[in-house]
Design a protein around this nucleic acid. Structure first.
Lengths: 191, 191
DNA sequence: TATTGTTATACTCTATAACTATA
DNA sequence: TATAGTTATAGAGTATAACAATA
């Protein structure tokens, strides 16, 4: 996440009521919490010299071994060319492996190494601790309530079916118009 | 948000149970949904040639007029130097105004213009529509349940008190160590 | 000497296009 | 001709450092 500043702004300085300003909106809270969690998890992974991306890729790979980089690319919602460096990282550290696809010699099939699986288990535990840290304020039934509500919302937004938010329907790769109208930033002239 | 690929990865290809893989974790769902919402809202604002950042800044400004750029900077959790261009944007479009602070001639005091207030009202409506689009899957009581759970979680993480996730406690500006240990990416050598 | 706003610079992440080797 | 992987390059966003004016 390139946690951009103001999802929708920031609910600053509580006055009296608990639900003031922007934080009365679920959208804002989701952006705020999402950014926060991503950051915290990245900090937790930093000592291992890893990024949440690596965890994501390793998990996806473990659930679906033998995938091509192309397949990984659409599963994770990142571009083909970005996958290259990430897989390089994993491979150079002995966490994953590229094998030539005998059926299509252009493609690789990707596998998680035993070391990778060990690390993944460790990362899963880290993610669980992370999760516990996040949810301290809620009791057990509230936690599962929250998760189930989030799952339903995610599903309704088409997010659980393997299509990452980065990929809008119909955009699987190049050719398609990734070039949305850019925001024309007013540049400073003088002062 | 520089929506980075894999908050924690991606729950690909539902098999049978609804709560599979990474999407059983609240953290993952928050990152996924946060990214998604940020993106959708950015798309909604694009035709107006605006970015969620602008909305965030305008909201924050409207709630607290007369702020300095420095104050805005810590309220939004973005760096002083980044505030400059954003305020430029708003000012050049007649949405906000810089006035010299008579008490401290180094500083500006910032104000939202009448046009800015009008636009803000319009953006608030857009955010409401966005919210509705997000929560279609839930009924009214579920919606408020979700929001209140999210608020409690956000509060427990220290997010509602005006400290944006970007600012870790004690880091208000320069001088402080923004330089965390960078991830050493394994670079490709040959092939 | 410290702070506000500013600029210039570097670094990260992502997107685009072109290239290769296959198909 | 199209596709998998790769590379180089350009863009957006953010962080760092240095500077002028002011405190």
């Amino acid at each position: 996440m390139a946690p951009d500043t103001g999802g929708h702004g920031d609910p600053t300085r509580m006055r009296a009521a608990p639900a003031r300003g922007l934080s009365r909106r679920a959208s804002f809270l989701l952006v705020q919490l999402g950014t926060h969690r991503h950051r915290r998890f990245a900090e937790r992974l930093a000592p291992l010299d890893l990024h949440p991306r690596h965890f994501g890729m390793l998990s996806q790979l473990a659930e679906n071994e033998g995938q091509s980089q192309q397949a990984l690319s659409s599963a994770l919602g990142i571009h083909r060319s970005a996958v290259v460096a990430l897989v390089d990282d994993l491979e150079h550290r002995g966490l994953a492996e590229r094998r030539r696809d005998p059926a299509d010699r252009r493609a690789y099939t990707l596998y998680v190494s035993p070391v990778g699986r060990e690390l993944l288990a460790e990362l899963d535990r880290a993610a669980d601790e992370d999760e516990a840290e996040l949810l301290t304020a809620l009791d057990v039934s509230e936690r599962s309530k929250l998760i189930s509500l989030l799952q339903r919302v995610a599903e309704s937004q088409g997010l659980t079916a393997g299509v990452h938010p980065n990929l809008k329907p119909g955009e699987g790769d190049d050719h398609t118009t990734h070039g949305k109208p850019r925001h024309a930033r007013t540049r400073r002239t003088s002062r």
